[in-house]
Amino acid sequence: MELIQQLINGISLGSIYALIALGYTMVYGIIKLINFAHGDVFMVGAFTGFYLITVFHLPFVLALVLTMLITALLGVVIERVAYKPLRNATRIAALITAIGVSLLIEYTTIYLRGAQPAAYPEDIIPNKTIAISGLTISSQSIVILAVSVTLMIILELFIHKTKTGKAMRAVSVDADAARLMGINVDRTISVTFAIGSALAGAAGVAFGIYYIKIEPLMGIIPGLKAFIAAVLGGIGIIPGAMVGGMLLGIVEALVSAAGFSLWRDAAAFLILILILLFKPSGLFGKNIREKV
C-alpha cells in the first residue's frame, strides 16, 4: 500500500516535470536547440501566477490561463530576440546564448523584486484529503494531475489534428523541404516556443500550488530535471517527454520513501548518466545513422 501511495505522489510530481520537458523536446525537435532558458520561463510562470492570485485576486483557473498567455509571449520574445539571429550559427553559439538568456531572466527577476522567496496561499485550492482503501490523495495532487493530463492531451491533439501542428511536424523532419512546400518556418518556430513556454508557465503555477515556496532561482534544478526527463524519453519526441517526466517523478518519490530524500537529485542525474551510456536515443528514440 505504501508503494502505491508513493507512486501516486511520484505521478503528481512527474506531471510537473513532464510539462516542462515538453518545451525542451518541442524546441529541440524543431531547431535542434537545448533551450536552457526554459527552466527560467517556468520560474517566471510561477511568479506570474503568484502575483495574479495574490495581488489581482484572480481565481485559479483564470490565473493559470493568463500565466500561460504571458509566458507564451515571453517565449516568442526570447526566440525572436535571442535565437532567431543565430538560426544559421554554430550550435555552441546558440547554447551559450541560451545560458546567457537564462542568467538574464534570473537576475532581472532578482533586480525587479529582490531575491527573497514568496509563498503561494494555501487556500487557492481547498486542501482536502481523499482516503481510498488506506491511500491518501490530496486535492492539490488531483488538480495538478488533471491540469497536466488535460494540457498534454490538448497538445497531442493540436500536433496531430491541426494545420499548424502538421507544419511543426514537417519542419521537425526537414525545415528546407517544409519551406519549399510553402510552410512559414519562422512562424512555426515561434508557435513552438509559444506553446512550450505556455506549458512551462502552467508547470510553474502547479509547482507553486504543490510546494508553496517559490524563489527567483527555482527554475535551475526543475529545469535540469525536465531536461533529463526529455532525454530519458527521447529528446524531440513528445510522448517520450511525457513518459520521461512521469518516470522521473516516480523514481524521486521512491528514493525519498526509501529514506534517501537527500539523494533525490543525485538519482535524477544518475538516470541521465545511465541513459547516455546505454541508450543515448532515449526510451522512445531510434538510433539514426548519419553519413559523413
Rank of each mutant, 00 (worst) to 15 (best):
L157Q: 15
L283E: 00
F278C: 14
L135I: 13
L232E: 06
H38G: 13
V255C: 06
I105P: 09
F278E: 15
A198K: 09
R80A: 03
I273H: 12
V185Q: 01
G285Q: 04
V185I: 04
P121N: 05
Q6A: 14
A268N: 09
R179S: 14
V173D: 10
Q5P: 13
V149P: 11
H57I: 07
A194K: 07
R187A: 10
A131T: 15
Y107A: 08
L64K: 03
A198V: 09
P126R: 03
V171N: 00
L103T: 15
P222V: 02
F193C: 09
S15L: 14
T90Y: 04
G249P: 08
V185H: 01
E252D: 14
F207H: 06
G100N: 10
Q5R: 09
V44Q: 01
L73H: 07
I228T: 11
I250E: 07
L3Q: 05
I96W: 03
G204Q: 04
I209N: 05
E79L: 13
G10F: 00
T136F: 04
N287E: 15
T25A: 08
G100I: 06
G201F: 01
S15N: 13
A177T: 12
T108W: 14
G114H: 03
R289Q: 15
D265T: 11
G249L: 06
S102P: 10
L232I: 10
F207I: 08
